[in-house]
Design a protein around this nucleic acid. Structure first.
Lengths: 105, 105
DNA sequence: CCGCTTGTTCGACGTTCATGGAAATACATG
DNA sequence: CATGTATTTCCATGAACGTCGAACAAGCGG
């Protein structure tokens, strides 16, 4: 995970609409959520807007889709989030253990 | 930490320039870094651009500044990052323990 | 085949962002 | 007070974003 990639994912998550989408997906668990259901849940009025956000999330690898007949099931990609949180934690140690990390890490 | 606040911080971090700035600050430890040094380190040519990004980071509470005579020392606010990582981890459990979280959490 | 549902793509609108140059501010020093 | 350094604020410009409506594609059921 390099800085550019992390920034891209952070940016994807850095919009209330997309963060809500992602959160709903995460909470839906492995089963995932059809786009229609997702729209209903996050309260985005226009389907095209949701589709746009979803596309962005997918591009960064945070979300995946699987077709089931006419409906598209969306799922959060947990390993991606894991990596991202790992990157953040690695850079920042979250506490005060940061002093020893140095520069080459 | 609500969704809006988290999204704001995520967005602040979601730019290669700002993520690099933040990273440099984190690695500098609690000693912090003067703006000038920061500029030199992250390779932003215009001081005004750096100042702009810094301002954004400060607005979201991710970075703090302290004046020392003519120079401004910038520091990463570790608790803020801790909260953000916590929010992400809380929503996503990072692994596969997510199924039990439910909806009301 | 036709209509219905599901979801995406396209084109457009106004808003916000990133960037940098110039002027302004804050502070130390002589 | 004048000068010099450090940093921000102001302003302008082009690019990207968020949002939406309308048109389109795909698959199911009569």
């Amino acid at each position: 995970m390099n800085v550019e990639q992390a920034a891209k994912q952070l940016e994807a998550l850095g919009s209330p609409a997309r963060l809500r989408i992602y959160r709903a997906l995460v909470r839906a668990g492995h089963a995932g959520l059809p786009v229609r259901r997702l729209q209903d849940r996050v309260g985005i009025p226009a389907a095209s807007t949701l589709s746009h956000h979803l596309h962005r999330l997918i591009l960064t690898g945070l979300v995946s889709q699987e077709r089931q007949a006419t409906t598209l099931i969306c799922r959060a990609v947990y390993p991606a989030m894991d990596d991202l949180v790992g990157f953040l934690a690695d850079e920042c140690c979250a506490d005060e253990t940061c002093s020893g990390t140095g520069e080459a890490a």
